[in-house]
Design a protein around this nucleic acid. Structure first.
Lengths: 234, 234
DNA sequence: TCCGGATAACTTGTCAGGCAGGTTACAGCC
DNA sequence: GGCTGTAACCTGCCTGACAAGTTATCCGGA
Protein backbone atom coordinates (compact mmCIF):
# COMPACT_ATOMS: atom_id res chain seq x y z
CA UNK A 1 0.00 0.00 0.00
CA UNK A 2 2.71 2.48 0.93
CA UNK A 3 5.20 1.12 -1.58
CA UNK A 4 4.41 3.98 -3.94
CA UNK A 5 6.06 7.35 -3.36
CA UNK A 6 3.74 9.61 -1.46
CA UNK A 7 3.35 12.04 -4.34
CA UNK A 8 1.74 9.42 -6.47
CA UNK A 9 -1.14 8.31 -4.33
CA UNK A 10 -3.54 11.02 -5.33
CA UNK A 11 -7.11 9.96 -5.89
CA UNK A 12 -7.08 6.73 -3.99
CA UNK A 13 -9.40 8.25 -1.46
CA UNK A 14 -12.35 6.13 -2.42
CA UNK A 15 -11.83 4.02 0.69
CA UNK A 16 -15.48 4.29 1.74
CA UNK A 17 -16.09 7.65 3.38
CA UNK A 18 -16.66 7.73 7.10
CA UNK A 19 -20.01 8.59 8.60
CA UNK A 20 -18.65 12.00 9.53
CA UNK A 21 -17.54 12.74 5.98
CA UNK A 22 -20.83 11.63 4.52
CA UNK A 23 -22.82 13.70 6.95
CA UNK A 24 -20.62 16.77 6.48
CA UNK A 25 -21.16 16.53 2.73
CA UNK A 26 -24.87 16.02 3.23
CA UNK A 27 -25.08 19.12 5.40
CA UNK A 28 -22.95 21.15 3.01
CA UNK A 29 -25.18 20.54 0.02
CA UNK A 30 -28.18 22.64 1.09
CA UNK A 31 -25.83 25.44 2.07
CA UNK A 32 -24.02 25.49 -1.25
CA UNK A 33 -27.28 25.08 -3.13
CA UNK A 34 -28.80 27.99 -1.25
CA UNK A 35 -31.61 25.98 0.27
CA UNK A 36 -30.24 26.98 3.66
CA UNK A 37 -29.47 30.66 3.51
CA UNK A 38 -27.09 32.68 5.71
CA UNK A 39 -28.36 33.14 9.28
CA UNK A 40 -30.76 30.21 8.88
CA UNK A 41 -30.78 27.85 11.81
CA UNK A 42 -29.75 24.27 11.24
CA UNK A 43 -31.73 21.46 12.85
CA UNK A 44 -30.49 20.67 16.34
CA UNK A 45 -27.77 18.08 16.83
CA UNK A 46 -30.31 15.76 18.35
CA UNK A 47 -32.65 16.12 15.37
CA UNK A 48 -29.84 15.65 12.84
CA UNK A 49 -28.66 12.56 14.67
CA UNK A 50 -32.11 11.08 14.46
CA UNK A 51 -32.68 12.11 10.84
CA UNK A 52 -29.42 10.56 9.65
CA UNK A 53 -29.48 7.65 12.05
CA UNK A 54 -26.10 8.40 13.60
CA UNK A 55 -24.96 9.36 17.07
CA UNK A 56 -24.71 12.92 18.27
CA UNK A 57 -20.92 12.60 18.34
CA UNK A 58 -20.88 12.07 14.58
CA UNK A 59 -23.15 15.06 14.08
CA UNK A 60 -20.90 17.18 16.25
CA UNK A 61 -17.78 16.22 14.32
CA UNK A 62 -19.46 16.94 11.00
CA UNK A 63 -20.61 20.33 12.21
CA UNK A 64 -17.16 21.03 13.64
CA UNK A 65 -15.78 20.50 10.18
CA UNK A 66 -18.25 22.91 8.61
CA UNK A 67 -17.45 25.38 11.36
CA UNK A 68 -13.73 25.36 10.68
CA UNK A 69 -14.39 25.99 7.01
CA UNK A 70 -16.59 28.93 7.84
CA UNK A 71 -19.85 27.49 6.58
CA UNK A 72 -21.51 27.25 9.97
CA UNK A 73 -21.36 29.14 13.24
CA UNK A 74 -22.65 27.81 16.54
CA UNK A 75 -23.64 29.51 19.76
CA UNK A 76 -24.16 27.63 22.94
CA UNK A 77 -27.78 27.49 23.93
CA UNK A 78 -29.02 28.94 20.63
CA UNK A 79 -28.06 26.51 17.93
CA UNK A 80 -26.04 26.23 14.73
CA UNK A 81 -26.48 28.77 11.96
CA UNK A 82 -25.36 29.12 8.37
CA UNK A 83 -22.51 31.63 8.41
CA UNK A 84 -23.04 35.14 7.08
CA UNK A 85 -20.52 34.48 4.30
CA UNK A 86 -20.45 30.70 3.95
CA UNK A 87 -17.06 29.22 3.18
CA UNK A 88 -15.23 32.41 3.93
CA UNK A 89 -12.53 30.89 6.11
CA UNK A 90 -10.93 28.53 3.68
CA UNK A 91 -10.64 28.20 -0.07
CA UNK A 92 -10.99 24.72 -1.50
CA UNK A 93 -10.64 23.63 -5.07
CA UNK A 94 -13.44 21.57 -6.53
CA UNK A 95 -12.05 18.13 -7.05
CA UNK A 96 -14.70 17.31 -9.58
CA UNK A 97 -14.22 20.52 -11.49
CA UNK A 98 -12.64 20.71 -14.87
CA UNK A 99 -8.87 20.48 -14.72
CA UNK A 100 -8.16 23.10 -17.33
CA UNK A 101 -9.62 25.82 -15.14
CA UNK A 102 -7.33 24.81 -12.33
CA UNK A 103 -4.30 24.70 -14.58
CA UNK A 104 -5.14 28.07 -16.06
CA UNK A 105 -5.46 29.56 -12.60
CA UNK A 106 -2.04 28.21 -11.79
CA UNK A 107 -0.61 29.75 -14.94
CA UNK A 108 -2.08 33.13 -14.04
CA UNK A 109 -0.75 33.01 -10.50
CA UNK A 110 2.72 31.94 -11.48
CA UNK A 111 2.80 34.55 -14.19
CA UNK A 112 1.98 37.12 -11.53
CA UNK A 113 4.84 35.74 -9.47
CA UNK A 114 7.20 36.04 -12.39
CA UNK A 115 6.13 39.59 -13.16
CA UNK A 116 6.54 40.68 -9.55
CA UNK A 117 9.85 38.84 -9.29
CA UNK A 118 11.07 40.75 -12.30
CA UNK A 119 10.33 43.99 -10.51
CA UNK A 120 11.48 43.14 -7.02
CA UNK A 121 14.12 40.42 -7.06
CA UNK A 122 17.30 40.85 -5.08
CA UNK A 123 20.73 39.49 -5.87
CA UNK A 124 20.01 36.69 -3.43
CA UNK A 125 16.81 35.78 -5.25
CA UNK A 126 18.72 35.55 -8.50
CA UNK A 127 21.34 33.32 -6.88
CA UNK A 128 18.59 31.08 -5.50
CA UNK A 129 16.94 30.83 -8.90
CA UNK A 130 20.20 29.84 -10.56
CA UNK A 131 20.95 27.38 -7.78
CA UNK A 132 17.52 25.81 -8.15
CA UNK A 133 18.05 25.45 -11.88
CA UNK A 134 21.48 23.93 -11.33
CA UNK A 135 20.05 21.49 -8.81
CA UNK A 136 17.47 20.38 -11.32
CA UNK A 137 20.15 19.93 -13.98
CA UNK A 138 22.17 17.82 -11.55
CA UNK A 139 19.16 15.71 -10.63
CA UNK A 140 18.42 15.03 -14.26
CA UNK A 141 22.07 14.23 -14.95
CA UNK A 142 21.95 11.78 -12.06
CA UNK A 143 19.11 9.94 -13.76
CA UNK A 144 16.16 11.43 -11.89
CA UNK A 145 13.33 13.47 -13.26
CA UNK A 146 13.99 16.37 -10.93
CA UNK A 147 10.44 16.70 -9.65
CA UNK A 148 11.42 18.00 -6.22
CA UNK A 149 13.86 20.39 -7.82
CA UNK A 150 11.23 21.63 -10.24
CA UNK A 151 8.89 22.33 -7.33
CA UNK A 152 11.72 24.14 -5.63
CA UNK A 153 12.39 26.29 -8.68
CA UNK A 154 8.83 27.49 -8.82
CA UNK A 155 8.80 28.17 -5.09
CA UNK A 156 11.98 30.21 -5.32
CA UNK A 157 10.41 32.21 -8.12
CA UNK A 158 7.36 32.86 -5.96
CA UNK A 159 9.62 33.84 -3.10
CA UNK A 160 11.32 36.41 -5.31
CA UNK A 161 7.94 38.12 -5.71
CA UNK A 162 8.24 39.11 -2.05
CA UNK A 163 4.61 38.55 -1.18
CA UNK A 164 4.11 35.71 1.32
CA UNK A 165 0.38 35.42 0.67
CA UNK A 166 1.01 35.07 -3.05
CA UNK A 167 3.79 32.60 -2.45
CA UNK A 168 1.62 30.42 -0.23
CA UNK A 169 -1.20 30.41 -2.73
CA UNK A 170 1.19 29.62 -5.56
CA UNK A 171 2.43 26.61 -3.61
CA UNK A 172 -1.13 25.56 -2.86
CA UNK A 173 -2.37 25.74 -6.41
CA UNK A 174 0.88 24.33 -7.79
CA UNK A 175 0.46 21.20 -5.75
CA UNK A 176 -3.11 20.68 -6.90
CA UNK A 177 -2.15 21.39 -10.49
CA UNK A 178 0.62 18.81 -10.37
CA UNK A 179 -1.81 16.28 -9.00
CA UNK A 180 -4.31 17.09 -11.72
CA UNK A 181 -1.64 16.64 -14.34
CA UNK A 182 -1.27 13.02 -13.28
CA UNK A 183 2.34 12.98 -12.30
CA UNK A 184 2.31 9.23 -12.78
CA UNK A 185 3.04 10.03 -16.38
CA UNK A 186 6.17 11.87 -15.44
CA UNK A 187 8.31 8.92 -16.43
CA UNK A 188 7.43 9.68 -20.01
CA UNK A 189 9.32 12.91 -19.74
CA UNK A 190 12.69 11.24 -19.59
CA UNK A 191 11.98 8.95 -22.51
CA UNK A 192 10.82 11.79 -24.64
CA UNK A 193 13.95 13.68 -23.74
CA UNK A 194 11.99 16.74 -22.80
CA UNK A 195 13.75 17.60 -19.59
CA UNK A 196 16.10 19.83 -21.57
CA UNK A 197 13.04 21.69 -22.78
CA UNK A 198 12.01 22.40 -19.20
CA UNK A 199 15.47 23.65 -18.35
CA UNK A 200 15.49 25.98 -21.31
CA UNK A 201 12.14 27.42 -20.29
CA UNK A 202 13.34 27.93 -16.74
CA UNK A 203 16.34 29.72 -18.17
CA UNK A 204 14.11 32.03 -20.16
CA UNK A 205 12.19 32.88 -17.00
CA UNK A 206 15.38 33.66 -15.13
CA UNK A 207 16.57 35.85 -17.95
CA UNK A 208 13.37 37.87 -18.00
CA UNK A 209 13.48 38.28 -14.23
CA UNK A 210 17.10 39.32 -14.37
CA UNK A 211 16.29 41.94 -16.99
CA UNK A 212 13.55 43.26 -14.74
CA UNK A 213 11.02 42.88 -17.53
CA UNK A 214 7.66 41.97 -15.97
CA UNK A 215 5.85 41.45 -19.24
CA UNK A 216 8.54 39.17 -20.59
CA UNK A 217 8.59 37.24 -17.34
CA UNK A 218 4.83 36.83 -17.45
CA UNK A 219 4.98 35.67 -21.03
CA UNK A 220 7.86 33.27 -20.34
CA UNK A 221 5.99 31.67 -17.53
CA UNK A 222 2.76 31.32 -19.44
CA UNK A 223 4.73 29.69 -22.24
CA UNK A 224 6.33 27.36 -19.70
CA UNK A 225 3.01 26.25 -18.29
CA UNK A 226 1.51 25.83 -21.73
CA UNK A 227 4.46 23.69 -22.78
CA UNK A 228 4.02 21.65 -19.62
CA UNK A 229 0.43 20.94 -20.54
CA UNK A 230 1.47 19.91 -24.02
CA UNK A 231 4.17 17.66 -22.59
CA UNK A 232 1.53 15.93 -20.52
CA UNK A 233 -0.78 15.58 -23.45
CA UNK A 234 -3.43 17.99 -22.23
CA UNK B 1 -24.99 42.51 19.43
CA UNK B 2 -26.52 41.95 16.03
CA UNK B 3 -27.40 45.58 15.52
CA UNK B 4 -24.39 46.00 13.22
CA UNK B 5 -24.68 44.83 9.62
CA UNK B 6 -23.18 41.40 9.22
CA UNK B 7 -20.36 42.61 7.01
CA UNK B 8 -18.96 44.73 9.77
CA UNK B 9 -18.43 42.22 12.52
CA UNK B 10 -14.99 41.08 11.52
CA UNK B 11 -12.53 40.33 14.28
CA UNK B 12 -14.93 40.04 17.15
CA UNK B 13 -14.04 36.40 17.48
CA UNK B 14 -12.24 36.78 20.76
CA UNK B 15 -15.21 35.24 22.52
CA UNK B 16 -13.07 32.77 24.47
CA UNK B 17 -12.14 29.89 22.21
CA UNK B 18 -13.66 26.52 22.89
CA UNK B 19 -11.59 23.61 24.11
CA UNK B 20 -11.72 22.12 20.64
CA UNK B 21 -10.36 25.28 19.04
CA UNK B 22 -7.57 25.60 21.57
CA UNK B 23 -6.53 22.01 21.16
CA UNK B 24 -6.69 22.18 17.37
CA UNK B 25 -4.40 25.19 17.45
CA UNK B 26 -2.09 23.49 19.91
CA UNK B 27 -1.82 20.46 17.66
CA UNK B 28 -1.34 22.57 14.56
CA UNK B 29 1.66 24.43 15.96
CA UNK B 30 4.19 21.58 15.90
CA UNK B 31 3.05 20.66 12.40
CA UNK B 32 3.48 24.17 11.02
CA UNK B 33 6.74 24.60 12.90
CA UNK B 34 8.05 21.35 11.48
CA UNK B 35 8.54 19.70 14.85
CA UNK B 36 6.13 17.01 13.66
CA UNK B 37 7.14 16.09 10.15
CA UNK B 38 5.05 14.43 7.43
CA UNK B 39 4.31 10.77 8.12
CA UNK B 40 5.09 11.22 11.82
CA UNK B 41 2.57 9.62 14.10
CA UNK B 42 0.65 11.79 16.50
CA UNK B 43 0.09 10.68 20.09
CA UNK B 44 -3.00 8.52 20.44
CA UNK B 45 -6.34 10.14 21.19
CA UNK B 46 -6.23 8.69 24.67
CA UNK B 47 -2.75 10.13 25.31
CA UNK B 48 -3.70 13.55 23.93
CA UNK B 49 -6.82 13.59 26.07
CA UNK B 50 -4.73 12.92 29.17
CA UNK B 51 -1.97 15.36 28.21
CA UNK B 52 -4.37 18.25 27.64
CA UNK B 53 -6.81 17.25 30.36
CA UNK B 54 -9.81 17.03 28.09
CA UNK B 55 -12.14 14.26 27.06
CA UNK B 56 -11.53 12.06 24.08
CA UNK B 57 -14.49 13.64 22.31
CA UNK B 58 -12.71 16.99 22.31
CA UNK B 59 -9.55 15.39 20.96
CA UNK B 60 -11.52 13.69 18.22
CA UNK B 61 -13.19 16.91 17.14
CA UNK B 62 -9.87 18.75 17.09
CA UNK B 63 -8.28 16.03 14.99
CA UNK B 64 -11.33 15.95 12.71
CA UNK B 65 -10.74 19.60 12.05
CA UNK B 66 -7.08 19.08 11.18
CA UNK B 67 -8.10 16.18 8.98
CA UNK B 68 -10.53 18.21 6.92
CA UNK B 69 -7.84 20.83 6.36
CA UNK B 70 -5.44 18.17 5.18
CA UNK B 71 -2.93 18.47 8.01
CA UNK B 72 -3.38 14.98 9.40
CA UNK B 73 -4.64 11.65 8.15
CA UNK B 74 -5.99 8.85 10.30
CA UNK B 75 -6.22 5.16 9.72
CA UNK B 76 -8.31 2.94 11.89
CA UNK B 77 -6.20 0.71 14.04
CA UNK B 78 -2.93 2.48 13.17
CA UNK B 79 -3.23 6.00 14.44
CA UNK B 80 -3.14 9.59 13.24
CA UNK B 81 -0.31 10.85 11.05
CA UNK B 82 0.90 14.17 9.76
CA UNK B 83 -0.22 14.37 6.13
CA UNK B 84 2.29 14.03 3.32
CA UNK B 85 1.57 17.60 2.23
CA UNK B 86 0.20 19.30 5.33
CA UNK B 87 -2.54 21.83 4.70
CA UNK B 88 -3.01 20.79 1.11
CA UNK B 89 -6.80 20.58 1.15
CA UNK B 90 -7.66 24.14 1.96
CA UNK B 91 -6.03 27.52 1.55
CA UNK B 92 -6.38 29.92 4.46
CA UNK B 93 -5.21 33.49 4.72
CA UNK B 94 -3.14 34.39 7.73
CA UNK B 95 -5.26 36.74 9.76
CA UNK B 96 -2.21 38.12 11.50
CA UNK B 97 -0.35 38.66 8.28
CA UNK B 98 0.34 42.05 6.82
CA UNK B 99 -2.63 43.50 5.04
CA UNK B 100 -0.75 44.95 2.11
CA UNK B 101 0.24 41.49 0.91
CA UNK B 102 -3.37 40.42 0.95
CA UNK B 103 -4.50 43.52 -0.87
CA UNK B 104 -1.79 43.12 -3.47
CA UNK B 105 -2.81 39.52 -4.06
CA UNK B 106 -6.34 40.69 -4.63
CA UNK B 107 -5.17 43.30 -7.11
CA UNK B 108 -3.23 40.66 -9.05
CA UNK B 109 -6.15 38.26 -9.14
CA UNK B 110 -8.67 40.82 -10.22
CA UNK B 111 -6.28 42.13 -12.84
CA UNK B 112 -6.08 38.58 -14.17
CA UNK B 113 -9.86 38.49 -14.22
CA UNK B 114 -9.98 41.75 -16.13
CA UNK B 115 -7.40 40.61 -18.65
CA UNK B 116 -9.19 37.33 -19.29
CA UNK B 117 -12.53 39.09 -19.44
CA UNK B 118 -11.13 41.36 -22.11
CA UNK B 119 -10.25 38.31 -24.18
CA UNK B 120 -13.30 36.16 -23.60
CA UNK B 121 -16.32 38.26 -22.71
CA UNK B 122 -19.59 37.67 -24.47
CA UNK B 123 -22.29 40.18 -25.25
CA UNK B 124 -24.13 38.95 -22.17
CA UNK B 125 -21.11 39.59 -19.98
CA UNK B 126 -20.92 43.14 -21.25
CA UNK B 127 -24.62 43.65 -20.54
CA UNK B 128 -24.14 42.30 -17.03
CA UNK B 129 -21.21 44.60 -16.43
CA UNK B 130 -23.17 47.63 -17.56
CA UNK B 131 -26.17 46.54 -15.51
CA UNK B 132 -23.98 46.14 -12.42
CA UNK B 133 -22.56 49.59 -12.92
CA UNK B 134 -26.03 51.04 -13.38
CA UNK B 135 -27.22 49.30 -10.23
CA UNK B 136 -24.37 50.86 -8.31
CA UNK B 137 -25.18 54.27 -9.71
CA UNK B 138 -28.80 53.86 -8.66
CA UNK B 139 -27.82 52.72 -5.18
CA UNK B 140 -25.59 55.75 -4.75
CA UNK B 141 -28.30 58.04 -6.08
CA UNK B 142 -30.68 56.55 -3.56
CA UNK B 143 -28.34 57.57 -0.78
CA UNK B 144 -26.51 54.29 -0.17
CA UNK B 145 -22.86 53.55 -0.62
CA UNK B 146 -23.48 50.72 -3.06
CA UNK B 147 -21.38 48.14 -1.28
CA UNK B 148 -23.40 45.15 -2.40
CA UNK B 149 -23.50 46.54 -5.91
CA UNK B 150 -19.74 47.05 -5.90
CA UNK B 151 -19.23 43.45 -4.85
CA UNK B 152 -21.60 42.43 -7.60
CA UNK B 153 -19.66 44.41 -10.20
CA UNK B 154 -16.41 42.69 -9.33
CA UNK B 155 -18.09 39.29 -9.37
CA UNK B 156 -19.59 39.93 -12.78
CA UNK B 157 -16.15 40.90 -14.02
CA UNK B 158 -14.72 37.65 -12.66
CA UNK B 159 -17.56 35.75 -14.26
CA UNK B 160 -16.68 37.27 -17.62
CA UNK B 161 -13.25 35.64 -17.33
CA UNK B 162 -15.03 32.31 -17.79
CA UNK B 163 -12.96 30.39 -15.29
CA UNK B 164 -15.01 29.21 -12.29
CA UNK B 165 -11.97 28.41 -10.18
CA UNK B 166 -10.60 31.91 -10.74
CA UNK B 167 -14.00 33.43 -10.05
CA UNK B 168 -14.37 31.57 -6.77
CA UNK B 169 -10.92 32.57 -5.62
CA UNK B 170 -11.53 36.16 -6.62
CA UNK B 171 -14.67 36.18 -4.48
CA UNK B 172 -12.77 34.59 -1.60
CA UNK B 173 -9.88 37.01 -1.63
CA UNK B 174 -12.15 39.96 -2.34
CA UNK B 175 -14.13 39.32 0.78
CA UNK B 176 -11.03 39.11 2.94
CA UNK B 177 -9.59 42.20 1.32
CA UNK B 178 -12.74 44.18 2.03
CA UNK B 179 -12.59 43.10 5.64
CA UNK B 180 -8.96 44.09 5.88
CA UNK B 181 -9.78 47.49 4.45
CA UNK B 182 -12.00 48.18 7.43
CA UNK B 183 -15.27 48.73 5.71
CA UNK B 184 -16.42 50.57 8.79
CA UNK B 185 -14.79 53.57 7.20
CA UNK B 186 -16.96 53.25 4.16
CA UNK B 187 -19.19 56.02 5.37
CA UNK B 188 -16.34 58.40 4.69
CA UNK B 189 -16.67 57.65 1.01
CA UNK B 190 -19.94 59.46 0.69
CA UNK B 191 -18.77 62.51 2.58
CA UNK B 192 -15.66 62.76 0.52
CA UNK B 193 -17.76 62.47 -2.60
CA UNK B 194 -15.59 59.77 -4.01
CA UNK B 195 -18.27 57.42 -5.18
CA UNK B 196 -18.14 59.12 -8.56
CA UNK B 197 -14.47 58.25 -8.70
CA UNK B 198 -15.31 54.58 -8.24
CA UNK B 199 -17.89 54.70 -10.96
CA UNK B 200 -15.44 56.31 -13.37
CA UNK B 201 -12.89 53.61 -12.66
CA UNK B 202 -15.47 50.90 -13.21
CA UNK B 203 -16.30 52.57 -16.48
CA UNK B 204 -12.64 52.48 -17.52
CA UNK B 205 -12.53 48.77 -16.79
CA UNK B 206 -15.64 48.14 -18.86
CA UNK B 207 -14.20 50.12 -21.73
CA UNK B 208 -10.96 48.13 -21.71
CA UNK B 209 -12.88 44.87 -21.58
CA UNK B 210 -15.14 45.98 -24.39
CA UNK B 211 -12.13 46.85 -26.53
CA UNK B 212 -10.74 43.38 -25.87
CA UNK B 213 -7.50 44.89 -24.61
CA UNK B 214 -6.13 42.62 -21.84
CA UNK B 215 -3.26 44.88 -20.91
CA UNK B 216 -5.45 47.94 -20.62
CA UNK B 217 -7.97 45.97 -18.56
CA UNK B 218 -5.22 44.75 -16.26
CA UNK B 219 -3.89 48.28 -15.88
CA UNK B 220 -7.35 49.74 -15.28
CA UNK B 221 -8.06 47.27 -12.55
CA UNK B 222 -4.75 47.77 -10.83
CA UNK B 223 -5.38 51.50 -10.91
CA UNK B 224 -8.85 50.89 -9.45
CA UNK B 225 -7.51 48.84 -6.54
CA UNK B 226 -4.72 51.31 -5.89
CA UNK B 227 -7.21 54.15 -5.81
CA UNK B 228 -9.33 52.15 -3.42
CA UNK B 229 -6.40 51.80 -1.06
CA UNK B 230 -5.75 55.53 -1.24
CA UNK B 231 -9.41 56.23 -0.59
CA UNK B 232 -9.17 54.15 2.54
CA UNK B 233 -6.01 55.84 3.66
CA UNK B 234 -3.72 52.86 3.19
C1' DT C 1 -55.02 44.31 32.35
C1' DC C 2 -50.25 44.66 32.56
C1' DC C 3 -45.73 43.80 34.23
C1' DG C 4 -42.03 40.97 36.08
C1' DG C 5 -39.83 37.14 37.66
C1' DA C 6 -39.47 32.16 38.33
C1' DT C 7 -39.25 28.13 35.70
C1' DA C 8 -39.34 24.57 32.38
C1' DA C 9 -37.80 23.24 27.96
C1' DC C 10 -34.99 23.73 24.65
C1' DT C 11 -29.99 24.38 22.70
C1' DT C 12 -24.67 23.46 22.44
C1' DG C 13 -20.33 22.11 25.16
C1' DT C 14 -18.12 18.56 27.62
C1' DC C 15 -17.42 14.33 29.98
C1' DA C 16 -17.22 9.21 31.00
C1' DG C 17 -17.36 4.62 29.61
C1' DG C 18 -18.03 1.13 26.37
C1' DC C 19 -18.07 -1.92 22.11
C1' DA C 20 -16.61 -2.96 17.26
C1' DG C 21 -13.21 -3.46 13.88
C1' DG C 22 -8.45 -2.92 12.27
C1' DT C 23 -3.33 -3.30 13.28
C1' DT C 24 0.86 -4.69 15.59
C1' DA C 25 3.94 -7.18 18.45
C1' DC C 26 5.13 -11.01 20.97
C1' DA C 27 4.98 -15.48 23.09
C1' DG C 28 4.71 -20.07 22.16
C1' DC C 29 4.26 -23.98 19.30
C1' DC C 30 5.54 -26.68 15.14
C1' DG D 1 13.71 -20.60 12.02
C1' DG D 2 9.02 -20.01 10.71
C1' DC D 3 4.29 -19.84 11.67
C1' DT D 4 0.16 -18.96 14.46
C1' DG D 5 -2.71 -17.29 17.87
C1' DT D 6 -3.53 -13.94 21.07
C1' DA D 7 -3.23 -9.85 23.70
C1' DA D 8 -2.66 -5.03 23.52
C1' DC D 9 -2.95 -1.24 21.20
C1' DC D 10 -5.31 2.10 17.80
C1' DT D 11 -9.39 4.71 15.66
C1' DG D 12 -14.59 4.73 14.58
C1' DC D 13 -18.80 4.93 16.65
C1' DC D 14 -22.33 4.68 20.27
C1' DT D 15 -24.97 5.65 24.68
C1' DG D 16 -26.10 8.38 28.48
C1' DA D 17 -25.33 12.09 31.32
C1' DC D 18 -24.37 16.76 33.26
C1' DA D 19 -23.08 21.79 32.75
C1' DA D 20 -24.14 26.12 30.90
C1' DG D 21 -26.50 29.41 27.86
C1' DT D 22 -31.04 30.81 25.72
C1' DT D 23 -35.98 31.20 25.12
C1' DA D 24 -40.83 30.75 25.91
C1' DT D 25 -44.35 30.17 29.14
C1' DC D 26 -46.85 30.52 33.14
C1' DC D 27 -48.18 32.61 37.32
C1' DG D 28 -48.55 35.95 40.87
C1' DG D 29 -48.67 40.70 42.22
C1' DA D 30 -49.70 45.47 41.07
Amino acid sequence: MTAQPAILRLPLRAETPSLVESLADALLQPILAGAWRPHDRLPSEHALAEQHQVSRAVVREAIARLKSDGYVETRQGKGAFVAAAPGGNAFRLDVDGREDHLLELRALIEADCAALAAERHTEGDLRNLRAAQAAMRDAVAAGGIGLAEDIRFHDVLAEAAHNPALRRFAAFIGRHAREAMQLARLSQLREQNRLAEIEAEHGAIIAAVENRDPQAARAALQKHIASGLRRHGL
